[in-house]
Amino acid sequence: MKPRTLLLILTALFIISAGCFLFWGLPVQAMGFILPRRVIKVTALCVTAVSIAISTTLFQTVSANTILTPSILGLDSLYLLIQTLVMFLFGAQTLVIMSRISDFLLSVGLMVLFSLALFSLLLGKRPMAVTTVLFLGMIVGQLFGALSSFFQLLIDPNEFLTIQARMFASFNTINTSLLLVSTLIVAFACLLLIPLVDTLDVLAMGREMAINLGIDHRRLSRWLLIGVSILTAVATALVGPITFLGLLVVSLARQISPTFRHRIILPVSALLAMVTLLIGQFIFERILHFSTPISIIINFVGGIYFLSLLIKRRRI
Protein backbone atom coordinates (compact mmCIF):
# COMPACT_ATOMS: atom_id res chain seq x y z
CA MET A 1 0.00 0.00 0.00
CA LYS A 2 1.28 3.45 -0.81
CA PRO A 3 1.81 5.76 2.16
CA ARG A 4 -0.67 8.23 0.77
CA THR A 5 -3.42 5.66 0.37
CA LEU A 6 -2.81 4.47 3.92
CA LEU A 7 -3.02 7.97 5.31
CA LEU A 8 -6.20 8.61 3.32
CA ILE A 9 -7.82 5.41 4.56
CA LEU A 10 -6.89 6.18 8.16
CA THR A 11 -8.17 9.74 7.89
CA ALA A 12 -11.43 8.44 6.47
CA LEU A 13 -11.69 5.92 9.31
CA PHE A 14 -11.01 8.68 11.79
CA ILE A 15 -13.71 10.92 10.34
CA ILE A 16 -16.21 8.07 10.28
CA SER A 17 -15.51 7.02 13.86
CA ALA A 18 -15.57 10.59 15.13
CA GLY A 19 -18.82 11.16 13.23
CA CYS A 20 -20.34 8.02 14.70
CA PHE A 21 -19.27 9.06 18.15
CA LEU A 22 -20.75 12.54 17.75
CA PHE A 23 -24.01 11.83 15.97
CA TRP A 24 -24.98 8.24 16.78
CA GLY A 25 -28.35 8.22 18.49
CA LEU A 26 -28.37 11.98 18.95
CA PRO A 27 -31.84 13.12 19.99
CA VAL A 28 -32.76 16.21 17.99
CA GLN A 29 -34.54 17.98 20.85
CA ALA A 30 -31.52 17.76 23.17
CA MET A 31 -28.89 18.46 20.55
CA GLY A 32 -27.78 21.75 22.04
CA PHE A 33 -27.10 20.02 25.33
CA ILE A 34 -25.56 16.74 24.23
CA LEU A 35 -23.49 17.73 21.23
CA PRO A 36 -21.06 20.07 23.06
CA ARG A 37 -20.43 17.36 25.64
CA ARG A 38 -19.64 14.84 22.98
CA VAL A 39 -17.34 17.32 21.24
CA ILE A 40 -15.40 17.73 24.48
CA LYS A 41 -15.12 13.98 24.87
CA VAL A 42 -13.93 13.46 21.31
CA THR A 43 -11.35 16.22 21.69
CA ALA A 44 -10.08 14.69 24.91
CA LEU A 45 -9.79 11.28 23.28
CA CYS A 46 -7.92 12.74 20.32
CA VAL A 47 -5.52 14.84 22.41
CA THR A 48 -4.66 11.84 24.58
CA ALA A 49 -4.27 9.55 21.60
CA VAL A 50 -2.03 11.95 19.72
CA SER A 51 0.22 12.72 22.66
CA ILE A 52 0.63 9.06 23.60
CA ALA A 53 1.29 7.96 20.01
CA ILE A 54 3.80 10.71 19.32
CA SER A 55 5.65 10.37 22.59
CA THR A 56 5.98 6.61 22.16
CA THR A 57 7.25 6.94 18.58
CA LEU A 58 9.77 9.59 19.56
CA PHE A 59 10.96 7.59 22.52
CA GLN A 60 11.48 4.53 20.34
CA THR A 61 13.42 6.63 17.85
CA VAL A 62 15.69 8.13 20.50
CA SER A 63 16.26 4.80 22.21
CA ALA A 64 16.65 2.90 18.90
CA ASN A 65 14.35 0.21 20.21
CA THR A 66 10.90 -0.67 18.97
CA ILE A 67 9.43 -2.41 21.99
CA LEU A 68 9.80 0.27 24.64
CA THR A 69 7.35 2.90 25.75
CA PRO A 70 7.76 5.86 28.10
CA SER A 71 4.49 4.83 29.77
CA ILE A 72 6.22 2.10 31.76
CA LEU A 73 8.57 4.65 33.29
CA GLY A 74 6.60 4.83 36.51
CA LEU A 75 4.86 8.09 35.67
CA ASP A 76 1.41 6.64 36.27
CA SER A 77 2.34 5.55 39.77
CA LEU A 78 3.84 8.97 40.44
CA TYR A 79 0.57 10.55 39.27
CA LEU A 80 -1.43 8.32 41.58
CA LEU A 81 0.90 9.10 44.44
CA ILE A 82 0.46 12.84 43.90
CA GLN A 83 -3.32 12.47 43.78
CA THR A 84 -3.34 10.25 46.85
CA LEU A 85 -1.11 12.62 48.78
CA VAL A 86 -3.28 15.62 47.93
CA MET A 87 -6.30 13.63 49.04
CA PHE A 88 -4.59 12.44 52.19
CA LEU A 89 -3.29 15.83 53.21
CA PHE A 90 -6.29 17.97 52.33
CA GLY A 91 -9.24 15.59 52.02
CA ALA A 92 -11.63 14.86 49.18
CA GLN A 93 -13.35 18.25 49.33
CA THR A 94 -10.12 20.02 48.52
CA LEU A 95 -9.38 17.74 45.62
CA VAL A 96 -12.78 18.52 44.17
CA ILE A 97 -12.73 22.22 44.95
CA MET A 98 -9.06 22.84 44.29
CA SER A 99 -8.81 24.41 40.91
CA ARG A 100 -8.25 21.60 38.47
CA ILE A 101 -5.72 23.72 36.64
CA SER A 102 -3.38 23.99 39.60
CA ASP A 103 -3.75 20.29 40.35
CA PHE A 104 -3.00 19.54 36.71
CA LEU A 105 0.01 21.82 36.53
CA LEU A 106 1.37 20.46 39.80
CA SER A 107 1.08 16.88 38.58
CA VAL A 108 2.48 17.60 35.14
CA GLY A 109 5.36 19.59 36.59
CA LEU A 110 6.36 16.88 39.03
CA MET A 111 6.06 14.15 36.41
CA VAL A 112 8.17 16.08 33.91
CA LEU A 113 10.83 16.68 36.56
CA PHE A 114 10.87 13.01 37.43
CA SER A 115 11.21 11.76 33.88
CA LEU A 116 13.84 14.36 33.06
CA ALA A 117 15.87 13.22 36.06
CA LEU A 118 15.69 9.67 34.74
CA PHE A 119 16.44 10.64 31.16
CA SER A 120 19.46 12.63 32.23
CA LEU A 121 21.06 9.26 33.01
CA LEU A 122 20.78 8.45 29.31
CA LEU A 123 22.66 11.50 28.20
CA GLY A 124 25.31 12.02 30.82
CA LYS A 125 29.06 11.60 30.38
CA ARG A 126 28.75 7.87 30.91
CA PRO A 127 25.31 7.08 29.54
CA MET A 128 23.43 4.09 30.90
CA ALA A 129 21.62 1.62 28.68
CA VAL A 130 18.03 2.60 27.90
CA THR A 131 16.68 -0.64 29.33
CA THR A 132 18.56 -0.05 32.58
CA VAL A 133 17.06 3.41 32.89
CA LEU A 134 13.57 2.07 32.19
CA PHE A 135 14.11 -0.65 34.74
CA LEU A 136 15.25 1.96 37.24
CA GLY A 137 12.12 3.98 36.45
CA MET A 138 9.96 0.93 37.06
CA ILE A 139 11.68 0.24 40.37
CA VAL A 140 11.09 3.79 41.53
CA GLY A 141 7.55 3.44 40.17
CA GLN A 142 7.02 0.44 42.41
CA LEU A 143 8.25 2.51 45.32
CA PHE A 144 5.68 5.18 44.48
CA GLY A 145 3.06 2.46 44.17
CA ALA A 146 3.89 1.13 47.63
CA LEU A 147 3.71 4.62 49.09
CA SER A 148 0.37 5.38 47.51
CA SER A 149 -1.20 2.10 48.54
CA PHE A 150 -0.05 2.84 52.06
CA PHE A 151 -1.78 6.20 52.06
CA GLN A 152 -4.82 4.72 50.34
CA LEU A 153 -5.19 2.35 53.28
CA LEU A 154 -5.39 5.29 55.64
CA ILE A 155 -8.02 7.11 53.62
CA ASP A 156 -11.62 6.35 54.43
CA PRO A 157 -13.48 4.29 51.82
CA ASN A 158 -15.65 7.15 50.55
CA GLU A 159 -12.67 9.28 49.77
CA PHE A 160 -11.01 6.25 48.24
CA LEU A 161 -13.73 6.20 45.60
CA THR A 162 -12.58 9.62 44.42
CA ILE A 163 -9.05 8.25 44.08
CA GLN A 164 -10.29 5.13 42.36
CA ALA A 165 -11.97 7.32 39.77
CA ARG A 166 -8.53 8.68 38.95
CA MET A 167 -6.78 5.33 39.00
CA PHE A 168 -8.22 4.44 35.63
CA ALA A 169 -8.19 6.52 32.53
CA SER A 170 -11.61 8.01 32.12
CA PHE A 171 -13.05 10.26 29.46
CA ASN A 172 -16.28 10.97 31.25
CA THR A 173 -15.20 13.72 33.58
CA ILE A 174 -13.09 16.03 31.47
CA ASN A 175 -12.58 19.55 32.64
CA THR A 176 -12.89 22.03 29.76
CA SER A 177 -10.14 24.40 30.82
CA LEU A 178 -7.75 21.48 31.38
CA LEU A 179 -8.61 20.20 27.97
CA LEU A 180 -7.82 23.58 26.48
CA VAL A 181 -4.42 23.74 28.15
CA SER A 182 -3.55 20.18 27.11
CA THR A 183 -4.69 20.74 23.56
CA LEU A 184 -2.49 23.82 23.33
CA ILE A 185 0.53 21.97 24.72
CA VAL A 186 0.10 19.00 22.39
CA ALA A 187 -0.55 21.18 19.36
CA PHE A 188 2.52 23.24 20.14
CA ALA A 189 4.66 20.09 20.45
CA CYS A 190 3.37 18.82 17.11
CA LEU A 191 4.15 22.14 15.44
CA LEU A 192 7.70 22.04 16.79
CA LEU A 193 8.11 18.54 15.39
CA ILE A 194 7.18 19.40 11.82
CA PRO A 195 10.56 20.85 10.78
CA LEU A 196 12.30 17.93 12.49
CA VAL A 197 10.62 14.98 10.77
CA ASP A 198 13.45 14.28 8.35
CA THR A 199 16.15 14.71 10.96
CA LEU A 200 14.34 12.10 13.03
CA ASP A 201 14.82 9.55 10.26
CA VAL A 202 18.56 10.08 10.51
CA LEU A 203 18.41 9.83 14.28
CA ALA A 204 16.64 6.49 14.01
CA MET A 205 19.67 5.04 12.20
CA GLY A 206 21.51 4.95 15.47
CA ARG A 207 23.85 7.18 17.39
CA GLU A 208 27.07 6.64 15.41
CA MET A 209 25.43 6.98 12.03
CA ALA A 210 23.54 10.10 13.09
CA ILE A 211 26.70 11.75 14.37
CA ASN A 212 28.50 10.82 11.17
CA LEU A 213 25.78 12.47 9.15
CA GLY A 214 26.24 15.71 11.03
CA ILE A 215 23.58 15.63 13.73
CA ASP A 216 24.19 16.88 17.22
CA HIS A 217 22.89 13.65 18.67
CA ARG A 218 23.02 14.60 22.33
CA ARG A 219 21.31 17.93 21.92
CA LEU A 220 18.57 16.60 19.70
CA SER A 221 17.98 13.63 22.00
CA ARG A 222 17.75 15.92 24.99
CA TRP A 223 15.08 18.08 23.36
CA LEU A 224 13.15 15.09 22.14
CA LEU A 225 13.18 13.50 25.58
CA ILE A 226 11.92 16.73 27.13
CA GLY A 227 9.08 16.63 24.61
CA VAL A 228 8.41 12.97 25.39
CA SER A 229 8.17 13.62 29.10
CA ILE A 230 5.84 16.59 28.68
CA LEU A 231 3.54 14.71 26.31
CA THR A 232 3.39 11.61 28.51
CA ALA A 233 2.76 13.70 31.59
CA VAL A 234 -0.04 15.67 29.91
CA ALA A 235 -1.79 12.52 28.71
CA THR A 236 -1.55 10.91 32.13
CA ALA A 237 -2.77 13.97 34.00
CA LEU A 238 -5.62 14.62 31.58
CA VAL A 239 -7.30 11.22 31.61
CA GLY A 240 -5.19 8.92 33.79
CA PRO A 241 -2.80 6.12 32.97
CA ILE A 242 -3.17 4.08 29.76
CA THR A 243 0.05 2.09 29.80
CA PHE A 244 -0.23 -0.01 26.70
CA LEU A 245 -1.98 2.26 24.22
CA GLY A 246 1.32 3.65 22.93
CA LEU A 247 2.92 0.26 22.40
CA LEU A 248 -0.21 -1.10 20.78
CA VAL A 249 -0.71 1.63 18.21
CA VAL A 250 2.94 2.25 17.41
CA SER A 251 3.67 -1.42 16.77
CA LEU A 252 0.50 -1.67 14.71
CA ALA A 253 1.58 1.40 12.77
CA ARG A 254 4.98 -0.15 12.10
CA GLN A 255 3.29 -3.27 10.81
CA ILE A 256 0.87 -1.68 8.41
CA SER A 257 3.00 1.22 7.25
CA PRO A 258 5.12 0.58 4.15
CA THR A 259 7.87 2.87 5.40
CA PHE A 260 9.38 3.82 8.74
CA ARG A 261 10.00 7.43 7.69
CA HIS A 262 8.77 9.72 10.39
CA ARG A 263 6.68 11.92 8.12
CA ILE A 264 4.55 8.81 7.53
CA ILE A 265 4.87 6.83 10.74
CA LEU A 266 4.09 9.75 13.06
CA PRO A 267 0.73 10.64 11.49
CA VAL A 268 -0.11 6.98 10.95
CA SER A 269 0.38 6.12 14.60
CA ALA A 270 -1.43 9.26 15.76
CA LEU A 271 -4.40 8.48 13.51
CA LEU A 272 -4.39 4.85 14.57
CA ALA A 273 -4.37 5.85 18.22
CA MET A 274 -7.34 8.18 17.72
CA VAL A 275 -9.30 5.59 15.76
CA THR A 276 -8.55 2.90 18.36
CA LEU A 277 -9.65 5.03 21.26
CA LEU A 278 -12.73 6.39 19.50
CA ILE A 279 -13.95 3.01 18.29
CA GLY A 280 -13.08 1.35 21.58
CA GLN A 281 -14.89 3.96 23.62
CA PHE A 282 -17.83 3.93 21.22
CA ILE A 283 -18.31 0.18 21.38
CA PHE A 284 -17.91 0.18 25.12
CA GLU A 285 -20.15 3.07 25.93
CA ARG A 286 -22.93 2.91 23.36
CA ILE A 287 -23.15 -0.69 22.27
CA LEU A 288 -22.08 -2.81 25.22
CA HIS A 289 -23.04 -0.28 27.92
CA PHE A 290 -20.03 -1.44 29.90
CA SER A 291 -19.02 0.41 33.01
CA THR A 292 -15.47 -0.90 33.01
CA PRO A 293 -12.94 1.84 32.31
CA ILE A 294 -11.60 1.49 28.79
CA SER A 295 -8.00 1.68 30.01
CA ILE A 296 -8.30 -1.71 31.70
CA ILE A 297 -9.36 -3.27 28.43
CA ILE A 298 -6.66 -1.45 26.46
CA ASN A 299 -4.01 -2.60 28.90
CA PHE A 300 -5.26 -6.13 28.55
CA VAL A 301 -5.54 -6.19 24.76
CA GLY A 302 -2.39 -4.11 24.27
CA GLY A 303 -0.46 -6.33 26.61
CA ILE A 304 -1.49 -9.50 24.83
CA TYR A 305 -0.70 -7.97 21.46
CA PHE A 306 2.69 -6.92 22.77
CA LEU A 307 3.44 -10.44 23.98
CA SER A 308 2.43 -11.97 20.67
CA LEU A 309 4.69 -9.46 18.95
CA LEU A 310 7.60 -10.49 21.16
CA ILE A 311 7.02 -14.15 20.52
CA LYS A 312 6.71 -13.67 16.79
CA ARG A 313 9.84 -11.60 16.46
CA ARG A 314 12.00 -13.91 18.57
CA ARG A 315 14.85 -11.43 18.67
CA ILE A 316 15.03 -7.98 20.18
Partner: peptide, 24 residues
Protein backbone atom coordinates in the same frame (compact mmCIF):
# COMPACT_ATOMS: atom_id res chain seq x y z
CA UNK B 1 11.80 -18.39 23.19
CA UNK B 2 13.12 -14.92 22.49
CA UNK B 3 16.74 -14.01 22.12
CA UNK B 4 17.42 -10.79 23.96
CA UNK B 5 20.25 -8.39 23.41
CA UNK B 6 20.21 -6.65 26.75
CA UNK B 7 19.92 -8.25 30.13
CA UNK B 8 17.66 -5.65 31.68
CA UNK B 9 15.08 -6.41 28.99
CA UNK B 10 14.20 -9.70 30.68
CA UNK B 11 12.85 -8.16 33.90
CA UNK B 12 11.20 -5.41 31.83
CA UNK B 13 9.29 -8.04 29.89
CA UNK B 14 8.58 -9.81 33.14
CA UNK B 15 7.10 -6.69 34.67
CA UNK B 16 5.06 -5.96 31.56
CA UNK B 17 3.83 -9.55 31.60
CA UNK B 18 2.99 -9.16 35.28
CA UNK B 19 1.11 -5.94 34.45
CA UNK B 20 -1.05 -7.81 31.97
CA UNK B 21 -1.91 -10.40 34.60
CA UNK B 22 -2.56 -7.59 37.06
CA UNK B 23 -4.83 -5.87 34.50
CA UNK B 24 -6.87 -9.06 34.34
Amino acid sequence: HIRLKERTLVPLIGIIYGNIVAAT
